[in-house]
């Protein structure tokens, strides 16, 4: 099985870049290995529809992105199957999220959508200066996001080893724009 962990988000808008920062964080911290499966990590940024040819190559996709949800607060983490999204989930938060929703819908309509899970987090939306800094709420949410995705990956018969224990999401968010991904596309 070929697995894709796809980070989405505009890193120039603080918490809205968490999807992209988070996959760099996973890539830096963990080693994934399996005899029969592959794990690829891709920083999708705001590429949206241009990611279609990449997404459809895989058997299982994890999309990491910001979302909106009714009765939620910044830092809340949601993990769900894309085709069975809870009713309270709303992807209308920002332009890139709308684009991502459209992208997944387009793939679905073409019948090419792999099994897709979404790891979503509620960002703290602040219209401030352009910065890579993340809010306290998002920083705290990373532990939950991390445990969730690591467990999901392990369930797919992937061995997950920690290679860099002390890395933090704050450190990663400062360098993810210029960082090469170690677990880049395997197919």
């Amino acid at each position: 099985m070929n697995i894709l962990i796809l980070g989405i988000g505009n890193i120039l808008f603080q918490d809205e870049g968490i999807g992209a920062h988070f996959i760099h964080y996973l890539d830096e911290k963990y080693e994934f290995s399996s005899l029969s499966n592959t794990v690829s990590i891709v920083d999708g940024g705001t590429l949206a529809q241009r990611l279609i040819p990449e997404i459809i190559k895989y058997d299982k996709v994890f999309v990491v992105d910001c979302i909106d949800a009714l009765n939620s607060k910044p830092g809340d983490v949601y993990f769900f199957d894309y085709l069975n999204a809870p009713e309270e989930i709303d992807w209308q938060g920002s332009a890139h999220e709308v684009e991502m929703l459209q992208t997944l819908n387009m793939i679905k309509m073409n019948g090419d959508l792999p099994s897709t899970s979404v790891l979503g987090v509620i960002p703290k939306r602040v219209a401030d200066d352009t910065t890579f800094d993340l809010s306290e709420e998002i920083i705290k949410a990373v532990l939950t996001m991390e445990n969730t995705i690591v467990n999901a990956i392990k369930d797919l018969d992937i061995e997950v080893k920690t290679k860099k224990e002390d890395i933090t999401i704050e450190e990663i968010s400062e360098i993810s724009f210029k960082r090469d991904i170690v677990h880049g596309p395997r197919i």
């Binding site: 120039l12 200066d129 352009t130 910065t131 890579f132 724009f177 210029k178």
Partner: peptide, 19 residues
């Protein structure tokens, strides 16, 4: 616009040029 955004975020000239 994206170049200005990255400059405001503290990206240096050479890295920005590479981008």
């Amino acid at each position: 616009q994206s170049g200005i955004s990255f400059k405001l975020a503290g990206v240096d000239d050479k890295t920005l040029s590479l981008g």
